[in-house]
């Protein structure tokens, strides 16, 4: 009875075309999700995932013992579990901009899961020229999508937006560095092109040129069998020390953060 009442409310909202009214009812509407526009279905799926994440953070934060913590992890909302529904949404409305959003959600949140392969394939087929494809490029690096390397090359060549091209080129370099054995020279060439063509674009470590220089430094100087570069700095109390002080000892370098 209750459900039928909700259905009538939402049908009325749609029939009278009052979008804000429909938006207000989004939460109560999941029973009649098929009735709402694709963008709203997308929003309510995202909302559902975000709520599950917040609930999980609360439970894990409140856990006091190791046992409680282990138990709390049962409630971790695996993004992979949402892939099917985002995919269905994209497949039902291939012409709607929401299709791209749904596929990109999968790529960004569950890109390394096997379930994401279909989403990458669909993005490669239908959205290769999108101006929003930049954020998808990075998620291809560790994906299990077989066409990842080809897709990054195609985006670099065919996407008309320079920022997206830059993301694709940088990600292609990282893909080759991380995933292809013995292809260090190939990766170096790509990072050199990134510096020449996209060096001025922003990156979270300054510019793409700076980030690509970092990649080149690693490819050229941080391989097994090479002498470790010197590290000089201060400890938390401001006391200076350097890596070479420890010559003669086996050293484990641990880049860490308390998070």
């Amino acid at each position: 009875m209750h459900h039928r009442a909700l259905l009538i409310v939402s049908v009325l909202a749609l029939a009278t075309a009052i979008p804000c009214r429909a938006a207000e009812d989004t939460r109560a509407e999941s029973a009649s999700a098929k009735m709402s526009p694709p963008s709203e279905q997308y929003q309510s799926l995202v909302q559902e995932y975000e709520t599950a994440r917040k609930d999980f953070s609360k439970v894990i934060g409140a856990a006091k013992t190791e046992e409680e913590r282990t138990k709390a992890f049962d409630r971790y909302p695996r993004p992979e579990a949402y892939v099917d529904r985002f995919l269905t949404l994209a497949e039902q409305h291939p012409k709607d901009p929401t299709a791209f959003e749904a596929l990109a959600w999968i790529a960004v949140n569950a890109g390394d899961a096997p379930e994401a392969v279909k989403a990458f394939a669909s993005l490669a087929r239908n959205h290769i020229t999108s101006d929003k494809l930049g954020r998808v490029c990075q998620s291809l690096i560790y994906s299990s999508y077989e066409g990842a390397e080809t897709m990054l090359t195609t985006i670099w060549e065919k996407n008309p937006h320079r920022a997206v091209q830059g993301q694709a080129a940088f990600s292609l370099g990282q893909y080759i560095k991380e995933r292809k054995k013995g292809a260090a020279t190939e990766a170096e060439k790509i990072f050199e092109k990134v510096i020449a063509q996209f060096g001025d674009l922003p990156h979270y470590r300054g510019t793409m040129a700076q980030a690509a220089q970092g990649e080149l430094f690693e490819l050229r100087n941080l391989n097994i069998g090479q002498a470790a570069p010197e590290i000089e700095g201060e400890d938390v109390d401001g006391k200076k020390f350097k890596l070479s002080d420890y010559r003669g000892q086996v050293v484990v370098l641990d880049f860490w953060g308390d998070w």
Binding site: L222, Q226, A227, G233, R247, Q249, V250, V251, L253, F255
Partner: peptide, 30 residues
């Protein structure tokens, strides 16, 4: 923060990252 001079020079983008050096200072394991 995660863009400090040492992490930037060593091109570290994921934490933790581990390098194991021998007594001569050569990188032997990652």
């Amino acid at each position: 923060d995660t863009s400090g001079p040492i992490a930037t020079r060593w091109n570290v983008h994921g934490w933790p990252t581990i390098y194991v050096l021998d007594h001569k200072g050569v990188i032997r394991y990652k």
